[in-house]
């Protein structure tokens, strides 16, 4: 057996130096903070930098598709829940015209979500060809 065959376990990133979406350091999400009523929903949400870091890890472990997914996710942390669900709905079959999807892609791109925009733009083209767009 050569040494290169044994994958080396990688230490986890869970140093508590990271931050929640709210900006609060993860290490400060304590029972005392909960008792003081200081912990809210945004403290439960993942920070985009965390997702970007995980994308790098996924890439290093040979999964560029997982990395791409995590980078789209990092972009989506900026959107409110109902808007995320609205975009999902727009991508379901027969919900949007190709032009509608193209416009959605442009708006996402303009708002700093280029990767999500690219996914939607790609859908616009194929939906038109495969009859998945509304008319």
């Amino acid at each position: 057996m050569s040494e290169q065959q044994a994958p080396a376990p990688e230490p986890p990133a869970r140093a508590l130096s990271g931050r929640a979406l709210s900006g609060r350091p993860v290490a400060e999400i304590t029972l005392e903070a909960v008792r003081a009523g200081e912990v809210g929903l945004a403290d439960l949400r993942m920070h985009p930098d965390t997702l970007e870091h995980q994308a790098v890890v996924a890439e290093r472990h040979g999964n560029p598709q997982l990395a791409a997914n995590l980078r789209r996710a990092a972009e989506l942390t900026a959107l409110p829940d109902d808007e995320v669900m609205t975009i999902y709905e727009a991508l379901r079959p027969g919900r949007s015209s190709a032009a509608g999807l193209t416009a959605l892609a442009a708006s996402l791109d303009a708002r700093g979500l280029p990767r999500c925009a690219a996914l939607v733009a790609e859908a616009a083209a194929i939906y038109a060809r495969r009859g998945l767009a509304s008319t």
């Binding site: 949400r45 995590l70 991508l91």
Partner: peptide, 22 residues
């Protein structure tokens, strides 16, 4: 897939939506 009311793109987006919420 279409009868299931989704496409590969809607599912890919959903995957990202889940990850974005951790």
């Amino acid at each position: 897939f279409t009868d299931g009311d989704d496409t590969p793109w809607s599912k890919a987006f959903l995957a990202s939506a889940y990850a974005s919420r951790g």
